[in-house]
Design a protein around this nucleic acid. Structure first.
Ligand code: SF4
Ligand code: SF4
Lengths: 160, 160
DNA sequence: TGATTCTGGATATTTAGTATCCAGATTATG
DNA sequence: CATAATCTGGATACTAAATATCCAGAATCA
């Protein structure tokens, strides 16, 4: 899993803390946690394409949340950053070498394979678990541990 | 997920098909599906270290199953090949840049983070799903689709 | 007009995965 | 005992993916 997921999750919570009325530029979001600005910008673009953030150019532009944190699941963010590919990619080794049977007689493909089935099932379980938690729950827990974080962020943004 | 997982799963089933009494060399297992022999050998070594296979050097040596297929889960194989690392690695970005709070006041680490919790829970669901299926079930389904596969492998091995 | 910022493509750098090679140890066979 | 087969594990090379930077263009605001 790429570390852009972690950046994206924190950025969404930071956007919620920054208030609903202000857009925050990628540069400031990156500076807040000392991340590479241009690269974080790419992740934020992916979130915007996925409908999680909205973006606006120009001065006073930047990114803001497209919908409430409570309606954004961890799965939404992971899917936006990581793309739609499954972790297990079948390379059809069954079809290669002396072990490959008569291709005409074997109609079997990955869809009929118990390995592929099991891997897909496992990945679905993973996705379900991620979809079951939303970013507002994350925010609440973060505020419990660091109640001053939101205020500190707002003060720092105001000083920029 | 590395493709060594797919190789390892097929190799285990192939070892079961080859019969309990014969060891099969990495070279032959690789040739059967046209895989790079030296690299497959490394995956088989990992399976041996994990106690899934046993290995023996010398002529008539090679690899064989250390225990019945029914007692080897997909999770066992994945863990042996992929190693113990979790897919989500927290890089503690919370602690860097202006956003880092007073380090003394914050005892919070990854163990207290809702994100890390949720990611770990999701990964556990994935592991459970993999652990719920064993290689004997895979073998049965494979035999249903290609009943002649086992016989073909044994004949080819005898001719080598 | 000029400064700010997103967009998206091109490119470079770094890291992880894939693959090969070799020297050494072990074992079966004759 | 000598030889060939095979695993072991480290070193190395190659390739693909992730990470990071850069730039030209478009949009927006003051
Ligand atoms: S049998 Fe299953 S795991 Fe093996 S190559 Fe086919 S789809 Fe992939
Ligand atoms: S708050 Fe959670 S996700 Fe963020 S850096 Fe800390 S452990 Fe990682």
């Amino acid at each position: 899993m790429s570390e852009g997921v972690e950046w994206a999750l924190h950025s969404c919570v930071n956007l919620a803390w920054s208030g609903p009325d202000r857009a925050v530029s990628a540069a400031r979001l990156a500076a807040w946690h000392d991340l590479p600005a241009a690269y974080l910008n790419k992740q934020l673009q992916a979130l915007a394409r996925a409908g999680i953030l909205t973006s606006s150019p120009g001065p006073r532009g930047g990114f803001r949340l497209a919908r409430p944190l409570a309606s954004i699941s961890l799965m939404d963010v992971v899917a936006a950053v990581e793309g739609p590919e499954e972790a297990f990619r079948c390379t059809e080794i069954r079809r290669r070498g002396p072990g490959a049977g008569d291709p005409a007689a074997e109609g079997a493909d990955a869809a009929d394979c118990a390995v592929a089935h099991a891997m897909t099932r496992a990945e679905l379980a993973w996705r379900r678990a991620l979809a079951a938690q939303n970013l507002d729950e994350i925010r609440q827990q973060a505020e419990q541990q660091a109640p001053e974080a939101a205020g500190r962020l707002r003060a720092w943004l105001a000083a920029q």
